[in-house]
Design a protein around this nucleic acid. Structure first.
Lengths: 297, 297
DNA sequence: TATCAATTTCAGAAGAATTGAAATAGGCGC
DNA sequence: GCGCCTATTTCAATTCTTCTGAAATTGATA
């Protein structure tokens, strides 16, 4: 059976023009090279060189030089692709994330992650927690970032950080004058605008308030605009409100339990691709650190 | 160093879905296959299968399956091309031949030669002996068939057959009534049409006749037409006149030395390609046999 | 024709792959 | 959930391949 290694030796000899130099290049004895060549000729079925002095090829030798070079090049390239993929230097990474993280956390994280992996192709979807889970479960996304969900399903949740809810209202709202964390009961008189994220709050007091709310807005930008316009106040994870807005105030809530846990969502059964695994490990270290820095401990 | 053989084993396992069956396919023990796989994973730098049961691939495994299959296919194809070329089943063959052989001898020879080699590409040039030698010497033609030349040059001559010159005249010409081989002196009164081939005749008597000739025609068809039209007679190798023509007669010459030696013309320094070598061997056996059959011993 | 370097040959050495037996791990039925 | 059965892995010994170093041969050059 003809081996690629034999072709390598042959190509080296053909390029060197003699066995001695080629032997040095491949790090073998001249006799080893000579034997390899002889074996190759036997297996192919014809002479490769015109004479014993290996300085001129036969027609068969020329054909083998061309084909052999191409095979070697192609094989080495394939192997380097396999290695690059295994070491997560290439590959594709599809991330599904809730908007708050996609907007406020992922940009610097991805930048640092991709600095060492300029060849990795990334897709980023910002969608709500339920859809993040769905995309990960179906395999459309390799990894997700979402709020913790009650039931597992085909996906696994690994916490990254937790994020307290805060109150967002117009900066001339009367609650701003409280000088203390806001109690749920303080909101009885207020107009609450519901949103996708705050529906996760478990506190009964809040649920009652929420049930009476007449407006629900899912888009954060719209939500802030409505608050700013004086249509009411709303409850949001503090990360969402990281960027300060003119004309609105962010107030602490007294209910320490009012927080969401954000974490990684991954398929349970299929192992991650190398890039995904690398991103997972990176995210697990870098995201909590970044969030802590952003929000304070 | 990763070996193509290891990829072969991996692809077989991936396709079989388990080591045991794959081991049977490649004719090795399960333990040998297992070790090869382990070594491959070490060298690539990641796991190829999701579990020990080798029925589902990782992302890396899938990539390696695709790339590996392609490498194996491509390598095997290259090797088969090399072998086919070495065994003269493929390749190109450029033949330069004098018209008499190209027309009267080569067609059945080539047909038989190519029957066993349907993939061989053939080019056939019919030109005069001097140009045959030039084409072979320059490498434009792989092999030539021409009359023997005085000096060697870069080409070698190997005789195939010899071919007596005969006289071609109108069938009502007075020479037809001679009832004996024609002597050169019989032609003193005749009008001789010179042609490319007959210039090779060494006999002094003929040279004198030839020097007085006023018409020279190189194309055989035209030559025959001129003879038929009564413009004169001509001297041609018998092979050229193999096909009988209405209205013209072929007469024997008394001068037994008036013959041309036809043979193979090959480059001296460069070895022939496998197809060329095969054609050479074939021609050397088949052409003399065919000519003998055509012309009689 | 003699000389010299390159190549080939050969037998032994080194190295890699393979085997077979034993240990381990995983899946499936009870 | 437990135990059996089969597939897989591990390990040491063996076999096979490839490599080495010395000697013989070849071929080019003076």
């Amino acid at each position: 059976m003809i081996k690629l290694e034999a072709l390598r030796v042959f190509v080296t000899v053909a390029e060197s023009g003699n066995i001695k130099d080629a032997a040095d290049v491949v790090g073998r004895t001249a006799s080893a090279v000579s034997m390899t060549l002889k074996q190759l000729e036997d297996e192919i079925g014809g002479p490769l060189f015109q004479t014993d002095r290996k300085n001129s090829l036969t027609a068969l030798g020329n054909l083998m030089l061309d084909l052999g070079r191409e095979q070697i090049r192609s094989f080495d390239k394939s192997v380097s692709i396999m290695r690059a993929f295994a070491h997560s230097r290439i590959g594709s990474l599809s991330i599904a994330s809730v908007p708050s993280v996609a907007t406020n956390v992922l940009p610097p994280i991805l930048q640092r992650f991709l600095e060492a992996r300029p060849q990795v192709q990334v897709e980023l979807f910002d969608i709500d927690s339920a859809q993040v889970r769905r995309m990960v479960e179906s395999g459309v996304a390799d990894i997700g970032i979402a709020g913790e969900s009650r039931t597992g399903g085909g996906v696994e949740f690994t916490p990254l950080f937790s994020d307290r809810f805060k109150l967002l209202c117009k900066d001339d709202h009367e609650l701003c004058r409280l000088q203390r964390p806001v109690e749920w009961s303080d909101l009885n008189a207020a107009t609450l605008i519901r949103n996708g994220a705050s529906d996760r709050i478990e506190a009964e007091d809040y649920k009652l308030l929420s049930a009476q709310s007449l407006i629900t807005v899912y888009n954060v930008t719209s939500l802030v605009a409505l608050v700013k316009a004086g249509l009411g106040l709303t409850i949001l994870p503090s990360l969402t409100m990281h960027d300060a807005h003119d004309g609105v105030a962010v107030l602490e809530l007294a209910d320490a339990a009012a927080s969401r846990k954000v974490g990684l969502v991954e398929r349970r059964d299929v192992p991650p691709s190398p890039v995904t695994a690398a991103f997972r490990a990176f995210a697990l270290k870098a995201i909590p650190a970044l969030v802590e820095e952003r929000l304070g401990v």
